[in-house]
Design a binder for these strands. Structure first.
Lengths: 132, 132
DNA sequence: CATTGACCCTCCAGTAACTGGAAGCCTCAT
DNA sequence: ATGAGGCTTCCAGTTACTGGAGGGTCAATG
């Protein structure tokens, strides 16, 4: 199978597939003409990667998950550990963003948004406000 | 004032201050010895930048906000527009992360996390599940 | 007066995960 | 044989810094 077919079937862009080969996530063979030659298994792996990436796992996480996916004797606790760790990081990010949102939403609401210069947003960012 | 003092006073690391000069966010003078020479105004600007970055504004947003901050005749609607846009993007990110969290939390909960290989997380990521 | 330690300087490289684009084969159909 | 796609490699750019090497400067001390 050529890269285009694999891209269509897995949902992973050809460019990204080449990149994944570069960093050693997949290792397709080569045809005589120099084209990458993929198997069904590669399609599976790439779909797996696409799904994992969509869940926000890092490439390094993906590398780990992929090796567990391929390992018949993996223990579910290994997988769970990776996922739990990732979940924690997502929750941290959410918390940080929510705090930003709260501040921003408040400032935006207080700002008249008219032709005058007075603006609580700028004031909040300004250090002079501390001196007042 | 030297960069170290400014870093302490503004809370922005020296390394970052140099970077901000590189990309034209601030323009300190130079002393005869080649050291950057900062004024109080630079400290204000850097503190402003630090605050804006903490709220998640991009550097380009910061550039805009800084110029509005410096412009006596700015209109609050200009500021509000930038902030609203940013707020929208934050909300999008939150939504995306929350959706990831929901999926992940469910999978993590369902995973036994023991020595057996069976794992709903891996299964969810696997494309074979589609064939079943 | 020389040295030491704390500052400061300028590059250069690396981070994460791609993405776009140029230049140039390969293949198949007309 | 020619033209449209598809494939190849390699280089550069994205975001916002951060770390480090190699090397001046300054103030105080022995």
């Amino acid at each position: 199978m050529n890269i285009g077919d694999v891209a269509r079937q897995s949902g992973v862009p050809a460019k990204t597939i080449r990149y994944y080969e570069d960093i050693g996530l997949i290792r397709p063979n080569r045809s005589e003409n120099g084209y990458r030659a993929f198997t069904e298994n590669h399609v599976h792996k790439l779909a797996f990667l696409g799904r994992a990436r969509a869940l926000g796992f890092t490439i390094e996480d993906c590398r780990t998950l992929l090796s567990l996916y391929e390992d018949e004797n993996h223990e579910s606790m290994q997988v769970k550990a990776v996922a739990e760790d990732h979940l924690r990081q997502i929750e941290e990010k959410i918390a940080k963003l929510q705090s930003m949102r709260a501040t921003l939403a408040e400032l935006v609401e207080k700002c008249a948004g008219d032709h005058r210069p007075d603006c609580p947003i700028i004031e909040d960012l300004s250090p002079e406000r501390l001196a007042k």
